[in-house]
């Protein structure tokens, strides 16, 4: 029982990071019907922007303030990267077939990965200690680290904020309109190019937040760190029903928990196999994903 609870906590922590990244995949898919394969690399860039920000500022004293500062800079920087990617890679090919955009996405992903290796170096870097981590014992042998609590709180906060933007603001209403029908959204007077760019910025900022949380928790970063995590977050988005915001969160958490359970009870070498096995099984039973349906609310 103790092992189970411990694994559940770890799974939720892992799952929150998947969920934050999956939100970006699902939102961009919602407005453009594009799988932005470079999204995992934006997560990586978020971590590196955080790394350099913390080093340049010479943060010597770990604190919540330092963390918030680093995270804000990283989210803003990555949002800008998202805007640049959208403007110069995806927008010019939008009028061609979907396949063109997809191949462009793979190209952007490789470009970011290898440019990052060139600029940052291929060897893993230690993320500076901007947040003092310590373990808090809950009961028996079950512990939770304070950075795990942080990951969960920040994730919930960002998801609530996202929900408010999408469902309570005019901008969010425009996003939902674009996601439902691009041409009709234009006829409402919506500047759809702006909405699409905004969606990229929003998704990229969430990925950067995930990048910082991941780095604080796992402490090692490298230019290819976004590859597998990005792929898994994509799996999470599909699992939940791509295009569906709640689905992305649900898919992320389920995948995180399943993975950690497999590592704990079966073998950690097989956790990735199980992630994809779950995806295949869910898609056989529910091809549109857990929350995906014909009349889904897509963004």
């Amino acid at each position: 029982m103790e092992l189970f609870l411990q694994q559940l906590i770890n799974g939720i922590v892992q799952g929150s990071i998947y969920a934050l990244i999956a939100l970006g995949y699902t939102m961009v898919y919602g407005v453009l019907r594009l799988i932005n394969f470079a999204h995992g690399d934006v997560f990586m860039l978020g971590a590196f922007i955080g790394f350099y920000t913390a080093n340049l500022l010479g943060i010597s004293q770990p604190s919540v303030g330092a963390l918030i500062l680093v995270m804000t800079v990283s989210m803003a920087g990555s949002a800008a990267v998202g805007l640049v990617i959208e403007r110069f890679a995806y927008r010019p090919v939008r009028k061609f077939s979907r396949l063109t955009s997809l191949i462009t996405a793979i190209g952007v992903s490789l470009l970011l990965e290898y440019a990052a290796q060139f600029v940052f170096g291929a060897t893993p870097k230690s993320f500076p200690t901007i947040f003092e981590t310590q373990n808090i014992s809950l009961f028996g042998n079950v512990t939770i680290s304070n950075d795990s609590i942080l990951i969960i709180i920040v994730s919930i906060f960002l998801m609530v904020m996202l929900n408010l933007i999408v469902f309570k603001t005019k901008l969010g209403k425009a996003m939902r309109a674009v996601s439902f029908n691009l041409d009709v959204a234009k006829l409402m007077g919506i500047n759809t190019d702006f909405i699409i760019a905004f969606t990229f910025a929003l998704g990229s900022a969430l990925a950067a937040a995930a990048g910082i949380l991941y780095s604080v928790h796992f402490t090692k970063i490298d230019p290819l760190m976004g590859l597998l995590i990005g792929l898994k977050a994509f799996v999470a988005a599909v699992l939940g029903g791509i295009g569906n915001i709640t689905g992305a969160v649900l898919g992320g958490l389920l995948l995180g928990i399943a993975e950690i359970m497999v590592s704990g009870y079966i073998s950690s070498s097989y956790k990735d196999v199980f992630a994809f096995l779950i995806l295949i099984l869910v898609l056989i039973v529910k091809p549109a994903g857990l929350l995906g349906s014909a009349a889904q609310e897509k963004v």
């Binding site: 209403k173 939902r176 309109a177 439902f180 029908n181 041409d183 009709v184 234009k186 006829l187 409402m188 007077g189 919506i190 500047n191 759809t192 190019d193 009349a295 889904q296 609310e297 897509k298």
Partner: peptide
């Protein structure tokens, strides 16, 4: 661009109505 045409005072009810069915 369409959104600027709309701003100038031309609006359209599109073919097949184009109602946002999820809203």
């Amino acid at each position: 661009p369409t959104h600027k045409v709309v701003a100038q005072g031309i609006c359209m009810s599109p073919e097949g109505r184009g109602v946002f069915a999820n809203l």
